[in-house]
Design a protein around this nucleic acid. Structure first.
Lengths: 98, 98
DNA sequence: TGAAAGTGCTTTGTTTTTCAAAGTTAAGTA
DNA sequence: TACTTAACTTTGAAAAACAAAGCACTTTCA
């Protein structure tokens, strides 16, 4: 039998990063603030997880405005989509031995 | 909208513990050694994760023998089964907004 | 105009988690 | 008696998670 966890992506071990990715798969673009509120995180905590995802090139940042207020939004990259789907597939495989 | 990660169990953030649980859901009883080999872990690392799961009362230990050799085996508890299933449900819900 | 509040960070420092490696105990084997 | 295997525990180091505070900038409100 094969190691069942070998294909799970270490980056997605984190509930928070998993949450960010799942939100970004559903909504094309989400603001920092919305992520913060939905996931109930402090600024620093969220920022560091977003940073990890950005380093991995799984998400992209867009600096913009809403009216005249600054607004930073995030979206998933193609690479991120692939990695996330691969992770979900691996999870599914691991579990569907049930 | 509700916090999508609120129902994910922190204990299952770990790939390793996730792997242990998924193996124990499939196979009623597994030895330390088999887990070690399947998940490709060092003794200490596996032992500590098993310990975490045991503390949470998600798994049970059975000290026994194979022939005259000692053999420690592990099995999932009812609580563990519930917690794992709840976690998988939460994951599914989170993801099935796709 | 000036204080307060919001956005999106970075910095700081603590706590927690993760691991590998080495040591340990107890039993089995050559 | 030495060596091996099983299943740990201990140690220690590195990485990760996190809250809180600070910061730069802007807008809003009294």
């Amino acid at each position: 039998m094969k190691n069942p966890i070998a294909d799970l992506n270490k980056i997605f071990d984190s509930r928070i990063r998993l949450g960010v990715m799942s939100m970004l798969i559903v909504n094309h673009e989400i603001s920092f603030n919305d992520l913060k509120q939905m996931l109930e995180l402090t600024d620093g905590n969220l920022a560091s997880h977003l940073n990890t995802l950005e380093q991995a090139e799984f998400i992209e940042v867009h600096k913009g405005f809403i009216g005249r207020k600054t607004s930073t939004t995030y979206s998933i990259t193609i690479l991120g989509k692939q990695a996330f789907k691969a992770h979900l597939d691996a999870l599914e495989k691991m579990i569907n031995k049930l």
